[in-house]
Amino acid sequence: MKTYRVQALLLVALAFILGFSEFIIIGLVAPLAHQFVVPASQIGLLVTVFALVYALSTPILNLLIGARSLYRVLLVFLGIFILGNLGTALAPNFAILTGTRILTAVVSGSIISLAITIGNSLAPVEKRVRLVAWIFSGFSIASVFGVPLGTALGLVAGWRSVFGLITLLAILIALALAKALPQGLFQEPAKSLRHQLLILQDRRIQLGLLLPMLNLAGIYTFYTYLSPLITQSLQLSPHLLTPILFIFGLMSLASNLLSGRLAEMGGLRKIPFVFAGQTILLISLPFLLPKVGLCLGAIMLLALSMYLNNSPIQMHFMTLAEQKYPQALVFASSFNSICANLGIALGSAAGSWTFKSWGLAQVGPVGAIFAGGAFLVSLGLNYLLAER
């Protein structure tokens, strides 16, 4: 049991460093724009590029894993991740910065897919849902501690120091995982790539894929520009940015933990209520801007709803894969993160377009279009599951 706890803790730490690396751009928009003399909206597009590369590369790499040792593949991908973050820390210009972010994104999705698959294999059956929730919570812990502290470090010591810290932590986690994880983990061999892709023909999978994408598209339409929303639209002091980001991250951490509880209570049946609430909150944002307290309250409620879908939809994918498509376990474990990053790319791009075309005040209502779509899809998925 002690060994399992150490392994579980390291998998959560792995998710944390992945989240820290991915999300920190949101807290470094101003210093990066100043360093490379580019508009803030162009820095915001780094989030879009990262998410698109993540979503496109993850299924390809996961399909190529096949019957290879999951332990060895994980360590190789972690080595690439470390090189990508080190390159970002040393980037002399914006083009190289973009290239190193792309390199990091290429392997990030496969790393979290492997972490979930390995965790699912190591955990006792009764603890699988809870472990999946905690692995996803690693990303929220990155929001709670990584982004605010990284933002503060970037202001004091420069943005390069933040990526230097990420590189150092990633090396330590990789070394610990190399010692703690078993080397004999494999997924069931597939006859061919087509054999693994059979899972995509299942209508329950097809509808499920839309939920994380639409969920985070709605959230990231406004979240990508949360920093200027706080300092410009709400006209709050930049010194308040770090504590507000900290509270936002704390709420998103609670969201991931509540997601695990939701999954244990038949969560997919309750998810339509979550998306209905998101839609209402996003529509209301421009009307709440003159009332700072109410607007911040709505933002924190959105943070609380941000990841409630995570564990229910992840267990939906994993359960169907185990029962019907065991040759596609690693592939299925990546569905949530792939589609979530497609949603991040879509939402951050929509936020950038909205910011430039209509102003910051309208990022909420545009995000509500995606949240409303998630509400309708969740109703359809529940209807299909009830039929089966």
Rank of each mutant, 00 (worst) to 15 (best):
L165T: 14
P59Q: 12
L181V: 07
Y223A: 07
V129E: 02
P243S: 14
G347W: 06
I230K: 03
L197V: 05
L70C: 06
A13S: 15
S233H: 04
T58L: 09
I17W: 00
A67I: 01
C339K: 05
L346Q: 00
P182L: 13
A8C: 12
P182N: 10
F139C: 06
N93V: 10
A89Y: 08
R269F: 02
I96N: 00
R160D: 06
P189M: 12
S41A: 15
P182V: 14
A332F: 05
G367D: 07
S252Q: 14
A170V: 11
N215E: 11
L257G: 06
L384K: 14
S237Y: 11
L169Q: 12
L210P: 06
T104W: 04
L185N: 12
I26G: 03
M265Y: 10
L257A: 14
Q201E: 09
L294N: 03
L168W: 05
A133L: 09
L131H: 05
N382P: 11
A105K: 09
S334M: 12
I112W: 06
R160I: 08
A217Y: 02
F94E: 12
L234G: 07
L234E: 08
S252I: 13
V377T: 04
F287S: 11
L282K: 07
L155P: 00
L296K: 09
G297M: 12
P290F: 07
L52H: 07
